[in-house]
Design a protein around this nucleic acid. Structure first.
Lengths: 205, 205
DNA sequence: TCATATACTGTAAAAATATACAGTATAAAT
DNA sequence: ATTTATACTGTATATTTTTACAGTATATGA
């Protein structure tokens, strides 16, 4: 895909915004009005260039016969795009831009309960649960978890993925690997925050 | 929201389909052509009725100035739907309707190489590869596989998911579970068909 | 210095389109 | 029996819109 000039980019954005707002594409004249051009031919030329570069399609002879082929920015993606967050050793797995490794275009309803983000797994502590390094665990943000759930828990600045088991004040975070030991926390002494629970997993071979 | 008459419903569907196909709304004349009307006024009247009932908005004076306010049905899902096939003990994992357990709405580009269907895993032979019973393995139909790939192979009427290793005439299908033994086939004596290879996996917790 | 690409203005004609008006037909409701 | 709502045909026109053509200006590389 070829690069766009600054003006072409503006025109494409104008078409996308108009389409979003009204539900149908703008005319040449409307693009001009929006961008301050004084001749419909200005818009026409930019549209032709955008067509040639493969960003839009022009239905010749039809009024407002424009359609977006390739949105320049991620305007609205076709399916939703779900952020992938690295299982950072420090800090809460926030959706802040700096923590997002990438985005994956997939439907949040892929897993029945819905989910909010993918967490990229580090380490081997859950290997016996079939969860490998670099697997993406689909996490639903919730604090409503029950014993046996696979949960994302934050303790101080550390985020971890473990099985959840709580009896009164004693929280156990149980790994699925005999080489790792269960994390035991007395909630009267130390805080632990349930960030969410795993509702699924995807892996790329 | 008021009920639509049969014809109004048809017109609304026509607008939605046209919009889906072209990216912009139809003209009165195009609606007529689509539905067999002979006067643009037929379309006009239906559009006015749809506007009055709150299903569409009409931008007066603009060509193709229609926008959908309330879609009558949920039109087809945004992303593609991928079939899920049970790992049937007998027969090739065909995409024939009777073998499809269900469909999952997700983008085939979820995994970089693309894939054709999901295979629902039966048994524990790949458990040490983190592949559990009822996991869905994303399979790309291909015969181009190399040693070490996780492949879907059919031998006679049995379909199996194993690691692939071939040296000349000797095909080995290697499980990932010490309780299972490697399947060894002399291709001069017995046929084996590579149906595809695994490019990913999804699991619902 | 000359060609080339980008980025426009200005005008105008042909074609596409919305939309008003005058009818016809049919079934259901009053 | 008459009104009312739905569902159109057919025609015409004003308006919108595309699109071609003729220019102007500026920056960039050859």
């Amino acid at each position: 895909m070829k690069e766009l000039t600054k003006q072409q980019s503006k025109v494409l954005a104008c078409v996308e915004v108009y389409l979003n707002k009204t539900g149908f594409p703008p005319t040449r004249a409307e693009i001009c009005k929006e961008l301050g051009f004084k001749s419909p031919n200005a818009a026409e030329m930019h549209l032709r260039a955008l067509e040639k570069k493969g960003y839009i399609a022009i239905q010749s002879g039809s009024s407002r016969g424009l359609s977006i082929v390739k949105s320049q920015q991620s305007f609205e993606p076709v399916s939703d795009s779900v952020p992938v967050i690295g299982l950072v050793a420090a800090g809460s797995p926030t959706l802040a831009e700096e923590n997002i490794e990438k985005r994956i275009s997939c439907d949040p309803s892929l897993f029945a309960e819905g989910f909010d983000y993918f967490l990229k797994v580090k380490g081997l502590s859950m290997i016996d649960a079939g969860i490998h390094e670099d697997d993406l665990v689909a996490v639903k943000k919730t604090t409503q978890v029950k014993n046996g759930d696979l949960v994302v828990v934050r303790i101080e600045d550390e985020v971890t993925l473990k099985y959840f088991n709580q009896q009164d004040h004693l929280l156990e975070l149980i790994p699925a690997n005999k080489d790792f030991s269960t994390i035991k926390i007395d909630l009267r002494e130390q805080e632990a925050f349930v960030e969410g629970k795993s509702v699924g997993l995807i892996r790329t071979h």
